[in-house]
Write a protein that binds this DNA or RNA. Sequence first.
DNA 1: CTCCAGGCAATTG
DNA 2: CAATTGCATGGA
Length: 287
Amino acid sequence: MWNKTTSDTQFYYGIIGHDALLVKQIDTTSIEVHCSSNKLQGLPIDDFIRRYLTLDIEIGTVFRRGFADHYPDVWAIARRYLSVRVMRQDPFETMVTFMCAQGIGMGLIRRQVSMITERYGEELEVNTDFGSLRLHTFPSPSVIATADVNDLARCTNNNRIRAANIIRMARSFESGSMALACVQSGECPLETLRDALCVHSGIGLKIADCIALFGLGRFDAFPIDTHVRQYLQEWFGIEAARRSLTERNYRYLQDEARNILGEEYAGYAGHILFHCWRKEIRKMNTF
DNA sequence: CTCCAGGCAATTG
DNA sequence: CAATTGCATGGA
């Protein structure tokens, strides 16, 4: 998860494993990129950033050729958001985050994740020009696997069911079954991956697709939430999007979306549209 | 007090 | 099999 300091200087930071990555804007033409290590997850810093921020994805190929011609009105708005990047985030962190994202607002989601890192993560001291920042790593699966339900629930909106689900998922991660699914996630069919994720209580179709897209680099995964459902109806005239997201309708709408956006990058393109919809149409400022 | 917020699972038809 | 109904919680 990324954050911005409240100082007047633009200053962003994120924790990658046990290292900190900091980006500071020093003037109108340049930034400083600081990392607490010269390697991140075994990769030289430049290679890691390239992969983490999916700079290896040619953004011009995310929307298939012909999209602009077929949907000129949508394209007129969406083309301003082609700088949006879907990150390749840590799988476990992504699982916990989206398990916290059910029927709840973005502000509360972020608060839950922050509280989890502060309660269960390891404290990191990062020195900057502004002084030292006290940051926290995201806890490992083993830490969450041994957490007390009531204790974790204090971080999950006091929702004990959610806390219990997260703990059970972490234990599955520990046992190796979830880790194996992650290792194989790159090449297995999307349906197989989704099945492996959905055996866990608290992970349904939508959250499984979010994990695949944001945590496992499966840019073909296309999660459908309330916002996606709305733009599928408003922007693409899909009447079925008026009806509720039953499993059958969810799958049907996914097929429709793939017809419009293509198979390979349906989710990547979909997230750009998601962000665009919230910002431009719903005028939402939360992120 | 009501309604909503990046759904899920159990229960019916 | 597929649709409908509870649900859990904090904040606006």
